[in-house]
Amino acid sequence: MTAQLTIFVLSLLVGLEVISKVPATLHTPLMSAANAIHGVVLAGAMLIAVTADNLVGYALAFVAAAFAAMNVVGGYVVTDRMLKMFRKPGDRP
């Protein structure tokens, strides 16, 4: 438990440092990218799904897996769609 709490706190500190001076240009894509990363909850949904052994458990597992998969797949695809459009000066399509 202490080990996991340590990981949690250190990860918080990394998160505070990792995006320092993002230009306003990138605020929207960055939010979307961070949104995709928390889709990792899919791993959690998978782990609980396989321990389900009654109807309520199955229902919870189904909804959790569907929500998380939507978050992770949609999040990365929409972020990539946005960032794909940022071109360097001088590039022509």
Binding site: Q4, L5, I7, F8, V9, S11, L12, L13, V14, G15, L16, V18, I19, V22, H27, L30, M31, A34, N35, I37, H38, V40, V41, A43, G44, L47, I48
Partner: peptide
């Protein structure tokens, strides 16, 4: 992640929590 004892959830979640707050 803390509830089910899974490190990648803890790390990614905390990362997004903190960087999202900055953003």
């Amino acid at each position: 992640g803390l509830v089910i004892g899974n490190n990648v959830l803890i790390i990614a979640g905390a990362l997004v929590g903190a960087s999202g707050a900055i953003l």
